[in-house]
Every structure is written in C-alpha cells, then in structure tokens.
Write a protein that binds this DNA or RNA. Structure first.
Lengths: 272, 272
DNA sequence: CGGAACGTTGACTAGGATCAACTCAGGTGG
DNA sequence: CCACCTGAGTTGATCCTAGTCAACGTTCCG
C-alpha cells in the first residue's frame, strides 16, 4: 500500500505469477516496444554472468508480483514503512536516501539490475528510502517466495549472498571515498564509479554516460551544496577532465580523473 | 603468509581441525583461563541467537585453521593482499581501514563476534585492511571449508547472508551519519552505536564502556582531526552528555546524546 | 509570454584544518 | 631515585574549504 502511494502511472502489465523477470526467455512478460535487448533484463543478465543456473532463475521468477512504473521524483520505497516486497530496478536511475536531522542524505545511486531493498530479506524494516531519479520500471517480488527459493535452491541463496556482498563492498568503498577528501576528489571518484557501473549495465556511451542528476542531487550524494558542486564541476571542466552539459557527462581525461579520485576499478569476483 | 607477517606473538593453541570456534561446547579449544564465559565465543553466541542450529555450527567449525593473537597496532589483514582465509575477531577491538591518497580512513570498528573480512567469500581481494586497536585474538578459518559448509547446509548460507546484511546495514547507517552533519552530532552518533554494540557483545559497563581508541583513532573514523575531536569531546563534556577519561567512556545523559546524534537503535531482525 | 527549475557567479561567513606550544602520564635506563 | 623520552591530551592562533545568502542567466514547458 505504501508502495502504491499515488506515484505509479498504473502500468502493471504483468499478472501475478507470470514468468519474465529473471528469465531472459520470458520476454512475453513485457510489451514488445522494449528499445534495447541488452538493457532488457539487467539483473538476470548479471546473475547469469555470475553463474546462476537457469533453473534457479525460474525459481526466483515465481516470486514476481508485478512490474510498476514510477515518474521522476516519485518515492519507490518510503523510509520506515515495512513491506514484504522486494524491488528490483529494471530501467531508470534511482537513489537510496535517508532523511537526517539537517538535510536529506543520498547513500547511493541505483542502476538497472540493482536490488533496491535486498536487506528486507533480513529485516522488513529499512533504514532508508528509495526514490526515482528518472522514470523507473521496477519489478516487485514477494519476499517469502524468494526466501522459499533460497531455501530450496542453494544457487539462489548463493546468488543473493553475492549481491549482498557486492552492495556491501560498494558501500565501504563509497564511505572511504568521502571522509576528509576534497570536493574535487570526491566528485572525480563518483564519476569514475558511475562510469564503471553504467558500462557494466550496458548504459554507457562511447566517452561517458547520461547522468540524470541535478547538481542538487550530486550534492546530496557527495555531501556538498549545489553551489559547491557547480564550482567543482567548473574546476574539473577547466582542468579538461570532464564536461557535463544537458545531462550528458563526457570524460575527457580518464587517467587524470581516476588519479584525482584515487579510483581503482574493483576486481572481478573470484568465485560465485 | 601475509597473515603471519611478523606480528603474531606465536600463540596458536588450536591444532587444525579441532572443534571450538563456533561450538560453545568445544571449550577445550581454549586454555582454561578465559575470564568471561559470555565473551567467550561471541560469534557462536550471535549465530545461536539468530536461530542457527548447532549442527550448522559444527559444520562451520571444521573450517578452523588456527587462533592467532595480535598485539595493539598490528596489521591483522593487509590491504590488497589476497588470501583464502576468513578472520573472526574473538577478543579485542579492531578497525577496518583504507589508505586513501591524503590520509588513512577508518570505515568501522570491529568488536568480538565480528567477521573481519566476510567479503572474501565473494572476492578474495579486499579493498580494505584490518588492524588491531587492542591486543586481539582472531580465529582463522579456511574459506573453501566455509563455502562447502554453506553449499551443503542451508542454515549456514542463511547465517552468512544474515551477517552480510547486518554489516551492510551498519555501513549504510554509518555513511548516513557522516555527511553534512556537525562534529558533535557525528561523535554523539558514534558513541551511541558503540554503546549498543558493546552491550550486544557483553562488553558494556553499567553506564558506559571501555573505549580503547586514541583521539587520533576517533578522528579517523569520524573524519575529524585529533585536535578537533579533542575540542568536540570537551564540548560534550561541558554539556554534561558524556565523559572520557583514561579509556573509560561514561554516558551521563543518554537521552540528549541520542537526540544530538539522531540515533535510532536498529530494530531486531524479523527473520533469520 | 510567463513561470519554474536548474545552472552560474559573487560576497561573506563559519566550521574544521593546520601549525605550534605546552602539559601530563607512563616507561626506561642510568 | 631521578633524568629523559615518548605518546597522548590540551589549548591558542591562524588559515582555508565549503556553506550560506543573494542575484541573475538559461532552459524548458505549459
């Protein structure tokens, strides 16, 4: 109910129980006008690369309740509202936020293939909310189905464990990148990380990516004011490291940008 | 080998394959002079409370390789060195750190019962190191044994998933608590969190806990300089919220401290 | 055309960093 | 026993990064 709250545009093409979310084969679950086959089912693709057998995907797929659509700025998950549903971002950009005493804090951006609220498997209450940065399409799954799947198919449990680890590792890297570093270093790091993630999600352009975030949004994740984000962008532009115009971020000098951000690309996992 | 690096004092009483780490029953694995039965085997206690059946504990226990001891300041895990061992803190305080370009960053303190490098189950390379704040006793386990245990005993996989989620949730809360908040708010939050964790680990005193960290250490986790930590402590002392002398932290006004830190105690998990 | 949201720039402020000096407790060796 | 050293805590003076406030430009959209 909290999830239905006035933000969805009513597009829920999947009937409950239909196959489709985890199975690349189950394309009948979506209308045919999908633009890109690569971005079609990002989580399934990721899990498949991870070595999850198709059988396990079928198992997970049983948990699908519906696919919902959210306009930009809508709340996908409200902070502090318990739910027995798991949300997977299929399309669009989201963000994890927490309302602190002073102002809103963004903990991470979410890209297609990311599970918004994986922690719910542990605790149905979350300490954060999830909002839509752009228009988003979100797969809604039933937690108990997923738990059942994990307890019958070991591969499912392993896959979830893998996702949790990745998420955790990213949080740690992110926390480290903040701290007593300068605004330019933090911004550079963020761009490097997003560049890697957009490429992994198949969303990257040749020399950059579409960044659907305002300077205010960037400030919330970098812990800067929009004004200072502006100045910092200007600085990096002046250094010919990158440029950001009309939502398109272009990387001009990857070497120096990665050096400034002290960014080291995460190694590929050694095991599933 | 990286783990043997010149810091251990040679105390490794357990032969490989001995029972003891996860099994509260297997007390023969330690010398008899253990001071407190409650702090004796903190992770096992935690997992037991979580509903992990004793059989699964036996399974995990097979992975025990040795128990190592580290003096204060020693490196328990060196950043960037791959390893096939998992480390569980049995006694003492540790910290997760990453060396950034400018200075060292601490991501979290580790207390007895915490797994230092759970991520290694996913990727044998870590993006952080672990150091000993006090003298530490650490159980060293073989990763492959744990993986095998998780793939035969579902309860083991579930327990690991639970630990990963808890760790992840703590990271997110921590990242949120930093950000654009003032030094007093951050310090207050840290104290609140440590107060909850020391109580959970059975290490708390009546009205506080032993905090074996210098003001420099506190600065590294709070992203402040030691000088500013000092001033902030002085401020909180002046407000009669807490005092810290000779390593003993005393909470004088819990209500106002929690309010200042915007601390909300984490809810108990709804499922295992 | 008008309004709203975002981006841009300047002037000023403040929270925390930096640098430096000093105190204090504990340990070590003569 | 005292002299000395070291690491931590404490305090003051000064600097600088980023926040705040405010104005104006630009883009987009109804």
């Amino acid at each position: 109910m909290a999830l239905t709250s006035g933000s969805s545009s009513g597009e829920t093409p999947c009937g409950p129980g239909n196959a489709g979310v985890f199975l690349p084969h189950g394309k009948q679950a979506w209308p045919a006008q999908e633009p890109s086959a690569r971005a079609f089912n990002p989580l399934a693709e990721r899990l498949r690369r991870d070595g999850l057998p198709p059988v396990a995907l079928v198992e997970l797929d049983r948990g699908l309740v519906e696919v919902r659509s959210f306009p930009p700025g809508a709340a996908i998950i409200r902070e502090g509202v318990a739910s027995t549903r798991l949300h997977i971002l299929l399309e669009g950009w989201g963000r994890r936020t927490a309302d602190m005493d002073c102002c809103r804090q963004t903990m991470s951006f979410l890209l297609p293939g990311d599970v918004c609220d994986l922690n719910r498997l542990r605790d149905t209450n979350l300490s954060y909310g999830v909002g839509a940065l752009t228009r988003c399409r979100v797969a809604v799954l039933d937690i108990d189905s997923i738990r059942r799947a994990a307890s019958t198919q070991l591969a499912v449990a392993a896959a979830l464990l893998g996702l949790a680890f990745d998420d955790h590792a990213a949080s740690l890297r992110y926390a480290a990148s903040l701290g007593r570093r300068s605004a330019p270093a933090r911004l550079a790091y963020l761009i490097c990380e997003l560049w890697a993630r957009t490429r992994a999600a198949g969303l990257a352009l040749d020399d950059g990516f579409m960044l659907p975030a305002t300077q205010q949004d960037l400030g919330e994740i970098l812990r800067l004011t929009n004004v200072h984000v502006n100045r910092t962008l200007k600085l990096l532009r002046g250094e010919a490291l990158l440029k950001l115009e009309r939502g398109k971020l272009t990387i001009l000098d990857w070497e120096r940008l990665a050096q400034l951000g002290a960014y080291t690309p995460p190694a590929a996992p050694s095991h599933s």
